[in-house]
Design a protein around this nucleic acid. Structure first.
Lengths: 212, 212
DNA sequence: ATTCAATCGATACGAAAATAACGATAACTG
DNA sequence: CAGTTATCGTTATTTTCGTATCGATTGAAT
């Protein structure tokens, strides 16, 4: 039976982790409460946006006081599923792949990279950030066995499509694609295109705009 | 006098580079024309979106034929300012910083990283991807002299704010922030928050959604 | 030459996000 | 204890984005 059209908003999902990070800093500083306005100002956002984002997670604040920081952190984590363990595999041990492997933001937020793959025989067998690099051929079976659902793709664009197909074969349900190539995947597989050039294009236009 | 409300759309700016990359592949394969529908399918987009995006750049197609690939590439480059040379500096030579320095997508699209900085004395003076790492203290003056407008920030979040302040001092107009921290900058400075955790959160939700 | 089909381009519509407005509540003040 | 004010939470408005519809144009087919 069809589930009641589960709603999620990408803009909100992108902002919540930023709040979360800042809130943890505040918590470490010993603060206990914060108003939506202060949170908003720290990210150059409108206060209303923050209040609505937080409302979505189920957080409730108190007038004249704000939100309890510890509670906020908890509800955000629950909303994002960061209390459960999320898992993925990474393919492509170049500079970018290594950088992502070392990104603390993942391990800190309940995301674990189960396995690392590369097509380069020289890299296979070596250790990267404490994980052994496996040959691509092992990807499908390993993902199937571990029920891995997320694949991080940091290979050159010439290999992107073929690796994506291996991921699909392995039952991967969502691909985070850092290559600029589009991926041709069956329906039912999510592709998140992480376009660095696109982000830069946005920033460049913003700067041009400022100069007038 | 106020310039006529220059309009730009972030979603469009994020898609255009993807088209551009694909079009260059096609060109190398010897193709000369392409329809919006084919382009759309390659990125799992609606054909109407592609047509409207291309219309925005000033490209014109011919019925029953499509768009001329070489012309498309040119108009996209003009629209994005990729024909002019754009420049920036990068601060933070960790894994991520190195990865961005090596990213071909930048050099290929007319974006040049003029200088690289790090606070670590052990890194200063070394070469990374053919560029010498400079001490942070030199940042403001160098940016002022070169009129650098873009700053790429790939330092740990504890240093993000102080580096941002140096960038502002150096006349930087747009900061591409890869740290999860918010940046407190004066009005008139653009900050593009590149939230990796946020992107991952979006993908995880999409995958959850698929499973129903 | 006429018909047909594919593709573009423009207009119109709907959904989603950001912004604004306003009433409600709880702490502080005198 | 009453008034004031900061802050929340809801509803409404506007803007932006994506989608649908439809006529116009051009190349191919008959």
């Amino acid at each position: 039976m069809d589930d009641k059209l589960v709603k999620y908003s990408a803009p909100v999902l992108r902002r919540l982790p930023m709040y979360h990070h800042f809130l943890q800093q505040l918590k470490h500083q010993g603060l206990t409460t914060i108003s939506a306005a202060v949170l908003a100002k720290h990210f150059n956002l409108d206060g209303i946006i923050v209040r609505k984002d937080l409302a979505l997670t189920g957080s409730v604040g108190k007038p004249r006081v704000g939100f309890e920081i510890a509670g906020l952190i908890k509800t955000i984590e629950e909303y994002l599923g960061w209390n459960k363990l999320n898992r993925g595999v990474l393919v492509g041990c170049g500079n970018l792949g290594k950088a992502l492997l070392g990104y603390e933001g993942f391990s800190q937020n309940g995301f674990n990279i189960d396995a690392v793959f590369d097509s380069d025989p020289l890299l296979v067998g070596t250790q990267v950030h404490g994980k052994e690099v496996l040959p691509l051929s092992k990807l499908p079976n390993l993902c199937l066995r571990m029920h891995t659902e997320i694949g991080i793709l940091t290979v050159p664009s010439s290999q992107a499509q073929s690796v994506a197909e291996l991921m699909v074969e392995g039952g991967i349900k969502g691909i985070w694609n850092f290559s600029p190539s589009g991926l041709n995947v069956p329906r039912g597989i999510a592709v998140l295109q992480q376009s660095l050039a696109g982000s830069l294009a946005v920033l460049v236009k913003q700067v041009e705009d400022i100069k007038k």
